[in-house]
């Protein structure tokens, strides 16, 4: 398995952990979606894979990339992992690039400064990558500064940089959320293409369940730091089992769908909301007394698993 997160728990001072016993896997050539509201801990999972956690965070569990535990490796191995095995694509391409450095610097930095490749070779690779992500006139782009490019073009640059070291795992953290709809579609198509061409594993993080269901092979739904449902994308979309997933699907209007829009009641939990039972219980329309007191364990459901007392036999 390319990425295997096992029982990952991250605490950083709140009344509840940011992540609680999260387990998930990403295989080669597979796109795995991770869906949740803001504050659900989805970015923390991506950051754990690169060990970019806050200094004071207490972490337990394992994060295995190609069999090595990221949380336990030495500094040299960690830099190797960050530079060549795993690449991350961020939400806002404009803030991902240093505004005072040229695009060329951004693309070749990793190759020259961490992988020690000669500058000329890195430059040639950068040109190839820019062409591969569909940028016209790559020579001129290398000399430009980030503020001279549009958001969509910058996200292409970020994707190109992510591919620079030939990684096997891509982490896309809300990679298309800050783009407008047409560039969003272009970027998704690009990600899908490079993923398929190179056989990459991808962890696709988004708050948009519809997008995840359409783009990914499997989807994990995250709520208050725990995975509440893990299913193949199509089945999840067609037949959500966990009340939270159902709620998420019901909040978006659909053309020709006569169902009324029903927002999930209440507010997303903060780090100061601690739960004895199911974290979704306060907002769940079907909650019973047991939901308040006992934490549900994942049970097999529709080709995957969901953690809900209602699904227990």
């Amino acid at each position: 398995m390319l990425l295997s997160v096992e029982e990952l728990t991250v605490e950083a001072g709140g009344r509840r952990p940011i992540l609680r016993e999260v387990s998930l896997t990403v295989g080669r050539g597979e796109i795995v979606g991770l869906v949740g509201e803001s504050g659900s801990g989805k970015s923390t999972i991506a950051r754990s894979v690169l060990r970019l956690l806050p200094q004071r965070a207490r972490v337990s569990g394992r994060v295995l990339v190609e069999g090595d535990d990221v949380l336990a490796m030495g500094p040299e191995a960690l830099r190797g992992l960050r530079s060549s095995t795993v690449s991350m694509i961020y939400q806002d391409p404009r803030s991902s690039l240093n505004p005072v450095r040229r695009i060329g610097d951004f693309l070749t930095e990793r190759m020259v400064h961490t992988l020690g490749r000669p500058k000329a070779q890195a430059r040639a690779t950068a040109l190839e990558l820019l062409a591969a992500v569909g940028m016209r006139d790559p020579e001129a782009r290398l000399r430009q500064y980030p503020h001279e490019l549009s958001g969509g073009m910058l996200q292409r640059v970020v994707v190109a940089a992510a591919l620079a070291a030939g990684p096997s795992l891509l982490l896309a953290d809300e990679a298309t959320s800050a783009l407008d709809v047409t560039t969003q579609a272009e970027t998704l198509a690009l990600l899908r293409r490079v993923q398929a061409e190179r056989g990459l594993g991808m962890l696709f993080i988004t708050h948009d369940l519809h997008l995840a269901a359409a783009f990914c092979d499997r989807v994990h739904v995250l709520y208050a730091g725990t995975i509440v449902e893990s299913r193949p994308a199509k089945e999840l979309f067609a037949d959500p089992r966990h009340p939270y997933t159902q709620g998420l699907l019901a909040c978006t209007p659909d053309l020709g769908d006569p169902r009324p829009i029903r927002p999930v009641p209440g507010r997303p939990p903060s780090l100061d909301d601690a739960f004895d039972g199911c974290p979704f219980a306060p907002r769940c329309p079907h909650a019973t007394g047991r939901c308040e007191s006992a934490r549900p364990e994942p049970v097999t459901a529709g080709g995957g698993a969901a953690a809900c007392h209602l699904l227990e036999p």
Binding site: G13, I18, T44, R47, L53, P54, R56
Partner: peptide, 8 residues
């Protein structure tokens, strides 16, 4: 986004 450690 993750809460970044802030110094007191």
């Amino acid at each position: 986004m993750t809460a970044v450690a802030t110094l007191p």
